[in-house]
Nucleic acid binder design. Structure first.
Lengths: 212, 212
DNA sequence: TAGATTGTTAATCGATTAACAATC
DNA sequence: TAGATTGTTAATCGATTAACAATC
């Protein structure tokens, strides 16, 4: 079964389509043309149609796209139509913030546990989510398989922990540690490097000033 | 003075170059060729040379690049060779986490104040950073101009606050609220949409499973 | 000087946009 | 049926890679 590979440029845009369709749905708009959506989103209608047609023909000639139907289809494509279990490794400020952030759950991402090395944090709960010792990681995962591990630990510890997670069969890592993890090809890593984002912002400020 | 526009693909890669050069520097490595760096970073040597030559010739034929010199030059390009002042709008979990995160300061990003609407948070400090009332935003900014405002507030409030920040002369917004801000063309917005990042991760898990 | 490696031009590849026939 | 708008092919644009002359 030969599967067309979707470019990451397309994948990056899908959540934004999903968000705009959700807004339309909330406003009670039933149908939309690629042209009108393109104006709202500030992209070309051509790109919208090309992007969607990577996954199938969701529209209808002369009518456009049914908002609710397309919304649900994109949710399916993104895999947010079902539950994804997560654990958070690192119960510091960042880990706790993510655990507290209820919005992920509305998209099916449910945090099952937090793991930390600090004696003070172990045994504490955040929004009802228990913090376990890192020593229990392997035994806990053996009983409670999860799809996603969130890494909010210092970069020095990150590769070791990633290795342990992979050994436990975790298939995806949402990595907030500022390094490039080495994992087997079948493990998915999505990086969030906040300081790199901030540096891009800083570049654009600097570039603007220079232009003057 | 016609300024070459640098593509965002290039800009996204600059912080990563900077990070790898920093690591090399820490390991006492003085010089590196584009070829060796390309192997470490898993990109092509051609891309590294093309990227760098957007900004100038930093290397030397037959020798390669001086690690420390290139590290500093990229820092200059990124605008992290000088101090950037920030304020955080929204003193909730996320805002506090960012205020607590000392690593930004090592790259010149210094948080000067936090603003919030909650009576309980106003007057509290986070790592010595004072939380002010949102009512004081305009008067405070008039006395303490900053380059960057960080938005960690619910999306319902975000556009209004962005408008106020722009009116106060803030030139850059690091936006964690899950919406597309409308700002004048000369104001820089850098978005961090965590839920979109998580959805991309989820897509890749789903796509892997389908392939089986 | 000879060898190494850059800076830069040319070739290729992929992504975006335009155009239009198909069709609701 | 006529008008609207998709799905899809073709054209364009931009980014990446390859090649090599310049030069340290």
């Amino acid at each position: 079964m030969d599967q067309k590979v979707i470019s990451s440029a397309v994948i990056k845009r899908l959540p934004r389509y999903h968000r705009y369709l959700g807004d339309l749905l909330e406003n009670g708009i039933e149908r939309i043309s690629s042209n009108e959506l393109s104006e709202r989103m500030n992209v070309t209608a051509s790109q919208i149609r090309q992007d969607l047609n990577n996954f199938g023909g969701f529209g209808q000639q002369g009518y456009g796209y049914n908002v609710e139907y397309l919304y649900r289809e994109i949710a399916k494509i993104l895999g947010i139509d079902r539950q994804n279990s997560m654990i958070i490794i690192g119960g510091g400020h960042f880990g706790q913030t993510l655990a507290n952030y209820g919005n992920f759950e509305t998209r099916g991402f449910v945090t099952k546990a937090i793991f930390d090395v600090s004696e003070e944090r172990i045994g504490q709960t955040v929004r009802g989510i228990m913090t376990h010792s890192m020593d229990e990681l392997e035994s806990w995962l053996a009983e409670n398989p999860v799809e996603i591990a969130v890494l909010t630990i210092p970069k020095q510890a990150a590769q070791d922990v990633a290795d342990r997670l992979v050994a436990c069969g975790v298939k995806a890592i949402w990595n907030f540690a500022h390094l490039d993890l080495k994992v087997p090809r079948d493990v998915v890593v999505e990086n969030v490097h906040l300081s790199e984002s901030l540096m891009q912002l800083s570049y654009r400020i600097a570039a603007k000033e220079e232009k003057k």
